[in-house]
Design a protein around this nucleic acid. Structure first.
Length: 575
DNA sequence: ATCGTGGGCGCG
DNA sequence: AAAGCGCGCCCACGAT
């Protein structure tokens, strides 16, 4: 049994390396509970939210604890606004999702609706720093402490420690997501505007279509013989195309590009420009860039594979075209780094496929695949490898996959086995133990029905198709999910190293709590952008490289797999 | 008016 | 109209 809590009135600092559970106590108060090694309460401190920030800063400086919080997404923005960074946390919401679904232990966490992220509008409606727990008879920390103890039990039951690593990395990701939003990606609206005008043409003063776009639109309408055609309507456009003998089944660019007809060139031009205008035009710039910063919302663990999702501003879809608008502040620079072919490298290491790891040596894995003799050209290597990870069965890609089975049997066995499990309705897991969700009941019922004696052939065919779809999902899950884990550790290790750097000589004007320090500014699956003082560019670049090496070692130990970075130090993020 | 859905396209 | 995974966002359009 845990010891009874000691209520302290003095704000004495907890022991070094301790864990502190934070809970809301109503009326804006915060309760901080220091936990012992056995997760019992050692001390309890009640703080007014007005004094809370200073107290956290003091505790961070003296004892560097791991803060046990409900969710960084919910509480960290307000701390960052007061320039109070948290260094280490255990994020109960993020870890709940992992520990609930994991297949790595015999007894995973009991699922609970109380530990799901709240809908964003609900979140906004709660003004307090922490949850306000209404029923005052209940100890406000009880629920959090119970959940934390349960999570600790699951983590401890994983004897190889992978879940511990995953939860620590995931929690760090929760902090980093909020820090990157607070810092923002330095964005030059003048350069963005220049690109828009250069591409779309000048913007008419009274609103309406930019000139270059209007020219394309007029040409399309001319060739289709309809001066009033609305080009954004697929159905109307399709009918108009059919009228002039362009017999396509859709208006997608890949199908149109097969056709020879004078309308095609201006139509493709129009579509390209229309996309840029609607997705990242002047309206986007006004809505999403303020004070020279683009601040998307990152959602760690937002994809079941563990990848991050995003909300607002389409952060994960910034077109290459606009990358020159990502521009460092004066006296600062960008460190832009990405990994080439991260996923097949993860596959080679996970499967301990030495032949594939050999192909992965150096910068270009596809060149290595060609050198192995599996395929003739780099292009074929690319299609074969992607097909292997995505489950291609037909077309150029599907035709090439069997060649890889001969050369890389271990790697192929790993993904083939993941696919088989998925088709059978089973669960697959990443390197660190994030597991795929079970198929929904509708899927299971469909499979069960199709397996019965009375199943009609159409039903069987449809069920088979759904089974293969799920197989492709689980096939990809293990690879994409493990790549997400590599990236998460990479991020966390970069952040740890950047924290060791001294303050900047020149403050960045708009980086909020990071105006004086090198910081992560953007993350996209296998790429990071750092915004750093010029004098620290080399140190930051080393941090990024060292972090990558650590991520690889943490995931795969001594297995020899290259994960080379393409790293650039420059004023813009141009590729 | 508002919502859900599908086409289409950008990113990895 | 994609062969082959994972996303978010915009638009039109039909249902409510």
């Amino acid at each position: 049994m845990p010891k009874p809590p000691t209520t302290v009135t003095s704000k004495e600092a907890p022991a070094s390396g301790s864990r502190i559970l934070l809970a809301g106590a109503g009326a804006g108060d915060v309760i901080a509970v220091e936990l012992g090694a056995d997760d019992s309460e050692l001390t309890r401190t009640t703080l007014r939210s007005t004094e809370f920030g200073d107290w956290v800063r003091e505790v961070e400086a003296t004892s560097s604890p791991r803060w046990v919080i409900r969710s960084a997404r919910e509480i960290y923005p307000r701390l960052l606004a007061a320039s109070v960074p948290l260094v280490r946390t255990h994020d109960l919401l993020l870890c709940h999702a992992i520990l609930r679904d994991t297949d790595a232990v015999a007894r995973p966490l009991a699922p609970s609706a109380d530990w799901l992220p709240r809908a964003p509008d609900v979140e906004v409606a709660v003004p307090a720093l922490f949850d306000v727990i209404d029923h005052s008879s209940v100890d406000p920390i009880a629920e959090l402490l119970e959940q934390y103890r349960e999570q600790r039990r699951v983590i401890a039951s994983d004897k190889n420690g992978r879940l511990a690593l995953l939860c620590a990395a995931e929690s760090a990701g929760g902090l980093i997501a909020e820090e990157m939003r607070a810092a923002g990606l330095p964005w030059d609206p003048t350069e963005h505007d220049r690109i828009l005008v250069e591409t779309l043409g000048s913007r008419p003063a009274g609103g309406g279509m930019p000139s270059q776009m209007a020219e394309f639109a007029d040409a399309v309408r001319f060739h289709l013989g309809d001066p009033h055609l609305h080009l954004d309507s697929h159905t109307k456009l399709l009918r108009a195309l059919h009228r002039v003998g362009v017999n396509v089944e859709s208006t997608s660019q890949w199908e149109l590009s097969e056709i020879t007809h004078p309308v095609i060139a201006p139509l493709l031009g129009y579509k390209k420009l229309a996309r840029l205008l609607s997705a990242n035009g002047w309206a986007w710039l006004t809505e999403w860039v303020h004070d020279g910063r683009f601040r998307p919302i990152y959602i760690p663990g937002g994809v079941v594979t563990g990848r991050w999702a995003s909300a607002g501003g389409g952060a994960l879809q910034l077109p290459r075209m606009l990358r020159p608008a990502v521009r460092a502040d004066p006296g600062w620079t960008l460190v832009v780094a990405d990994v080439a072919q991260l996923e097949p490298r993860m596959l080679a290491a996970m499967a301990e496929d030495k032949a594939m790891a050999e192909a992965a040596r150096g910068r270009d894995l596809y060149a290595g695949v060609v050198a192995s003799g599996a395929v003739a050209t780099r292009e074929e290597a690319k299609y074969a490898v992607l097909g292997a990870m995505y489950g291609a069965t037909t077309g150029d890609s599907g035709r090439l996959v069997p060649r890889l089975r001969k050369v890389y049997p271990r790697a192929m066995r790993l993904v083939d086995e993941a696919a088989r499990k998925g088709e059978d309705g089973g669960v697959v897991s990443t390197r660190l133990g994030r597991s795929s969700p079970l198929p929904d009941t509708e899927w299971q019922e469909q499979q069960a029905a199709a397996a019965g004696d009375a199943a009609d052939p159409l039903e069987v065919k449809r069920a088979r198709q759904r089974a293969r779809e799920r197989g492709r999902f689980t096939r990809n899950f293990v690879v994409q999910g493990t790549a997400a884990e590599w990236s998460l550790i990479w991020l966390a290790e970069i952040r740890y190293r950047l924290r060791q750097l001294p303050e900047a000589a020149t403050a960045a004007p708009a980086s909020g709590p990071f105006a004086n320090s090198a910081h992560l500014a953007f993350f996209l699956h296998d790429e990071v952008i750092l915004h750093v003082p010029e004098e620290q560019a080399d140190a930051a670049a080393s941090a990024v490289r060292d972090a990558a090496a650590v991520a690889t070692r943490r995931l795969f130990g001594a297995f020899p797999i290259d994960v080379p970075l393409d790293l650039r130090i420059m004023q813009t993020a141009e590729k």
